[in-house]
Design a protein around this nucleic acid. Structure first.
Lengths: 275, 275
DNA sequence: TAGATTGTTAATCGATTAACAATC
DNA sequence: TAGATTGTTAATCGATTAACAATC
């Protein structure tokens, strides 16, 4: 709290944040602010307060102001933030004022969905090519673009200066595709395959996992209906019964009708171990 | 560090974690462990060390052991963890030993992709119904299931005891769909529409945003090629030039060819303000 | 027993939040 | 000036990590 005391000695002369470092948590929220601001901009709203913008973005206003403080002093006390100006500043900070060619590898259902996703083009992302290994898919079109064969990957990445690759292949193919993308010069990968990818230093990987989010929801859903109970089942005896037996005792309950989902396979997406 | 000193008095007699609370960060990683363990299980690997499993899941072993400590003592010192036993315990903790009927609302490209996604069924998630408001889509089939009309939503949720809904509609429809789901009794929502949803207390919402991940990659990609530079552009003058002018001075650079992606629209996914 | 590996401690790090002085 | 709202401080909270005693 600023209680009227002088600035703490250790903080004197220190910039808001050392050097270039914007916290990861802040970076992850900038797209949310940008979306809310873009909506305001389309409605020709000239200025917005931290309170209004925070509510539109689904965060609290203290967090928003703190986040913005890492970018600079872009607001006006007593007034708020200029919408257009802030849209520009956040876009620039995120790197969206430049064109980002991306390749999408694996044109199944999800690849199709992404190729058609409007939220990309509007933010500077341009689909440079759609690639697939299956000759039955190559030559068809998706979102107005021809699906090209994996063989062309290296040429396309070089010619189009692609630095971002999107992987929507089955998990068994993901690491190979990743390796080829990296070898060709791609340094950022968005991975939709449920596989842990290994990449060399300097390459960023982000992961979107459709089933993980659902599993997290199930966890919380489970504790809504009666805290415990419902999910009763007999724990299978572990191979070495010694230590786990202690634990098993803790949760001993009546036998029940639990399906052994855990022991099932991954359906058409068999999990693959990383190298 | 455990330096041989006795347990800190405040910690004496305290359970590993008070009551039911497993940290959110831990819950979010349990699906990763489960996937790696399932792969080991399919290869009939009987036991695994924290080091091996952590590497397969893409985390470090200290974090993994800490995470598991919230679940209980399921390992054996000097040996490791029994794979089958741990698969079961994590599945149970996540609530995956029971059947979770879900409805998917909005059967466009993404809805199709999700309906076909194999990672759901194998983890106890069962698609109870596919719903769409468009009569041109209703009656077609996706993943072997008929697409039904939104009018049936309430009946289906009640009859099938659906507690989880997946929204893959355009953003303009998301809040309405969300309201109907909640009114019908759904208490967990997985939202793929780029919209902030407002829900009453007791309803969980998780969000998957396809373009946000790409924007975060762009942010990091931007600082790889030359720290700064590349993304030079003249900042547009803010409406009120007073305060922002100071900030603008900080970043004044030469004019450039930046595309104004930021001012663009959301393509076929126009952003919508929350209520 | 000796070697291996867990479960837990405690330090550190990073993120969140409320509060308020600064300032429009 | 009075009212409004930012930018920043400092407290708190939660997550990560290395280290190692406990224990198989």
């Amino acid at each position: 709290m600023a209680t009227g005391r002088p600035t703490h000695p250790a903080d004197r002369g220190r910039p808001a944040n050392r050097g270039r470092g914007i916290p990861e948590a802040t970076v992850a929220r900038l797209p949310l602010y940008l979306r809310a601001l873009t909506a305001l901009s389309e409605r020709s709203v000239p200025t917005v307060s931290s309170e209004e913008l925070a509510s539109a973005a689904g965060v609290n206003s203290a967090k928003l102001r703190k986040d913005f403080s890492y970018l600079g002093s872009y607001g006006t006390r007593g007034v708020g933030y200029d919408v257009e100006y802030l849209v520009y500043q956040i876009s620039r900070e995120l790197g969206l004022t430049q064109d980002w060619p991306v390749v999408i590898v694996g044109i199944g259902n999800l690849g199709h969905a992404l190729a058609n996703y409007g939220g990309f083009a509007s933010r500077g992302f341009r689909v440079a090519a759609l690639l697939d290994a299956d000759h039955a898919v190559v030559g068809t079109t998706a979102a107005g673009l021809p699906v090209r064969h994996m063989d062309e990957l290296e040429d396309i990445v070089e010619e189009e200066q692609v630095s971002i690759g999107v992987i929507t292949t089955p998990p068994g193919a993901a690491q190979q595709v990743c390796d080829r993308l990296v070898a060709a010069g791609v340094t950022s990968i968005l991975n939709f395959a449920p596989t842990v990818l290994s990449v060399p230093d300097g390459v960023d990987v982000r992961k979107v996992d459709l089933s993980i989010e659902l599993q997290i929801l199930a966890f919380h859903e489970q504790r809504k209906s009666g805290e415990e109970g419902a999910e009763q089942a007999a724990a299978p005896a572990p191979a070495k019964a010694s230590a786990p037996a202690r634990a098993a005792a803790k949760l001993r309950r009546t036998a029940a009708t639990a399906t052994t989902a855990a022991a099932g396979t991954d359906g058409d997406l068999p999990a693959v171990m990383p190298a």
